[in-house]
Each structure stands twice: as C-alpha cells, then as structure tokens.
Design a protein around this nucleic acid. Structure first.
Lengths: 141, 141
DNA sequence: CCAATATACTGAGTCTAACTCACTATGAGT
DNA sequence: ACTCATAGTGAGTTAGACTCAGTATATTGG
C-alpha cells in the first residue's frame, strides 16, 4: 500500500517533474551551442545590465564561485563572455557579455520562450498570471 | 539594456529557481543516506505498489534504462531495493522495495514534506490548492 | 608601516545524474 | 531455424554541482 501524499509532497513532485521535462526540451532546443548552465550565466549577465564580478555572478546564480569559474571558462572559450580585470581590485575579475553572447542569448531566449509557451498553452492567460504570481511569492524569501 | 521577459520566460525562471533551492535543501536533509535520484526510485516503486521491471521503472522516471540500472545498483547495495528475476521473461528483472527501503522512504518523505511545507507556508492553504491544481494541469500531457 | 587576517579567483579532484554505444541473453514471428 | 526485437548491463562521456588547498591582493590593528 503506497503512502498518501500530502499537498506539500505533491507540489514538490510536480515542480520536479515539470522542470525535468522543461530542461530536457531546452537541451534539445539549445542543441550543441550552449548548455543550461551557460544560458543561466548569459541571462544573469544580461539581467545585471553591466559586468559582474565572478563572485557576484556566482552569488546571483546560487552556486559557489569555483563553479562559476568553470562555466565562465567555457563561455569565454566560445567567445560569448569576456573577462576583464577589475580596476578597483586587482584580485577581482569582471565578466561581461560579448556582442556574440548577447546575440546568442536572444536566440536562446526565444527558443526557451517557445518551449515554455507551448507547455503553458494548457493554461488560460489568467491562470498563467496566477501561476506566475504564486511562484513569485514562493520564490521570494 | 536587458531584454524584457515575457510571462513564459518568467515562469520558466521561477520554476527553475524554486526547484534548485528545494533540491539543495533536500540534499542537506537527506544527508549521507540517499540521493535525490535514489529517492525518486524508492518513491516510484512505492507508488507502483508492486515490483516493477527495470525498464518500466526507467520509463516512469523518465530516464533511459541504463541510467536506472546504476541507481538500482546503488540502492541494492544499500539493501533498500531487491532485484528478482521476472518469472515470465528471463531477460527481465523485477525491482522492489525491501522493508528497509520502505522504512527509509517514509523518513525521507517526512523530511521532504517538512522542507516543502516550510516554503509553502508563504502561501495560504487556498493558494496552495490553486498552485497544485495549476501545476497538475501543466504537468499532464 | 607592517604582520596578520580576510577576500577573490583558480587548480585538482570528487560526486550525482544523466547520456550513448556496443554487447549478451532471451523472446517472438515467419 | 533464422531473423529481428527487447531487457539489461559494461564501458565511457558530459553537465553541473561540490570541497579543499593554493596564490595574489586587500584591509586592518598594533
């Protein structure tokens, strides 16, 4: 006899499954070009609107700085971001999008938007709004 | 100038962030004992209410059979699941929970429930219901 | 002013969770 | 009986995270 699931468990499972599927879809859409983690970096840098220190980038991504280093390494090799020394602190490096990075980001955004929009089409626009609202409250500490 | 996010992008980002944080919390709660992937196997077997073929288990988890083999290997070493040959097909193996597996599952469920419930406490019970409903519709093909 | 401490990044190595490809054993259809 | 399909696994890879230790630079207290 399987144990009953309460609503917390149920929501946890649903979130997990949805994100899993969405990730897979994105991976296929993104193709060879950019991984999900790399996309997150590009998006974060774009959202910041300015170059970020590597440590600040890591903080915004919710990962440890060492992990950010690796992702930035790969993006830099691909020419999508650039490191420059921080003039105000010689220990620090600033990371920013290159024009190529900006360009690819908008392509990827569009693909991801399309994937998500398709899933979301199961809900009415009002429901989508409600969902966004609830998730925002859930996500905000 | 960062590009504007539409609602699809926004929801995608929120889902991603929430699941990321929730995973981290679970990992800490689960401790040394069981990984998230192993938990998913235990939960799926319990939900099935009977032994499953490895390939069927993989299908329900949304992973390829080879990946399921590895997770089951680890759980079997830990004594939480058992493999038995399928009497109706000598190629197949059935996987089922052991009593120890069942026991640990209920502990982990409780921990996970607690983690999620804390996050969910930011929403009213009605909002939780609404969220569960919307996510269910989103998750169902 | 300088020694001690703290911070910023990275090299080296690990772990989880997935993947593919190729192989073996067995089942099923003509 | 031969061919083809299916079930599981060995071997190897990748993404995305982690820790620990090390180097370079900054900050601060005496």
């Amino acid at each position: 006899m399987p144990e009953a699931e309460d609503i917390a468990e149920q929501i946890a499972g649903l979130l997990d499954g949805i994100v899993r599927r969405q990730r897979r879809a994105s991976r296929e859409e993104f193709g060879e070009r950019v991984t999900h983690g790399q996309f997150r970096v590009l998006r974060t840098l774009d959202g910041a609107g300015a170059a970020l220190r590597l440590s600040e980038l890591a903080a915004r991504l919710g990962i440890v700085p060492r992990s950010a280093t690796s992702v930035v390494d790969d993006l830099e090799s691909a020419g999508l971001v650039a490191r420059t020394p921080d003039p105000s602190d010689r220990r620090a490096t600033l990371v920013d999008l290159t024009p190529a990075g900006r360009k690819i980001l908008s392509t990827l955004r569009e693909k991801r938007r399309a994937v998500m929009a398709e899933e979301l089409s199961r809900l009415t626009p009002e429901e989508q709004q409600t969902l966004a609202h609830l998730l925002t409250r859930l996500a905000t500490d």
